[in-house]
Amino acid sequence: MKTPELVVSAVPHVHGGNSIPKMMMNTLIALIPAVVIGIYFFGMDAIRVVVIAMASAVAWEAILQKIMGRPIAISNLSGMVSGLILAMLLPPTAPWWMICTGTFVMILLGKEIYGGLGNNPFNGVLIAWVVLQMSYPDHMMYWLAPPGDFMTEATPLEVLKYEGVGSIAEHFTILGLFIGNTTGFIGEGSALMLLIGGAYLLIRKVVSWRIPVSFLGGIVLFSGIFWLTNSEEYASPLFHLLAGGSIMAAFFLATDMPSSPVTPAGMLIYGFLCGVLAVVIRLWGAWYDGAYYAVFIISILTPLLDKIKSKVYGR
């Protein structure tokens, strides 16, 4: 019997089947609950922003990859995911040209200029978001209140900043914050829906628990210290947890892979610092969307945090 030809190749001979498109698909699925409730509260406006952002992000990606002579890689879904996340950080009133500018900046400065996905030192979504905040502050703060009895068209964090802790209860209930019945960006409002999505990401092992958990832990701990010393002046940790996109930032922004650490200890510290800085910015900063700025700033430390390696077995 002549032995049939056998293939000889290196180990391992099997692979788990994980891939970027799979991770991205899972992230899209995880975002669905929060997007759906955003659309429920803000209606057609929200749909418009989401569609324009996703479509333009993918289009920019294809165009820029073509210009830079790289293989077109839109099928890995990463453009779609970042488009959707950016849309969730925009007000429902965002004009189309501003969205397209945002996605252009996001794809160019957040990805392609560094040689494509994986090499970017910053989270592209946040680069775009910060640029839009700086360039078009009026458009970024033109709010729609969700339907219902709303006495303010300010976001919870704006109320905290300008009216003080005592006024929060006049405008928002904790339950409202939990469900997402508040003024704000399209996708950041509903802590509940974002937590469901975040849990899905953890179960599917798309992200490690370390960054989100230490992030939220940092928020609770740091805001808790002030609240315990003076609850008249400082908002409760629960408020800080539910309002202003804390959950959004912890699960969907701080976990951006290329710009966050890879070592277990690095991840924990990174998340914790993000949480602390988020509260610092909210309490004393000139801006109030502390969670997003915090992620943007702390990602500068990523190369440093990656130096905190685990002790090698046997060393």
Partner: peptide, 23 residues
């Protein structure tokens, strides 16, 4: 069924760090 490893660009997902039994 044979796995192939054409190699892409590392996206720093940290999964390899997480599973490495030798840390």
């Amino acid at each position: 069924d044979i796995a192939e490893f054409p190699s892409g660009v590392c996206i720093k997902c940290g999964l390899c760090v997480e599973v490495c039994p030798m840390r």
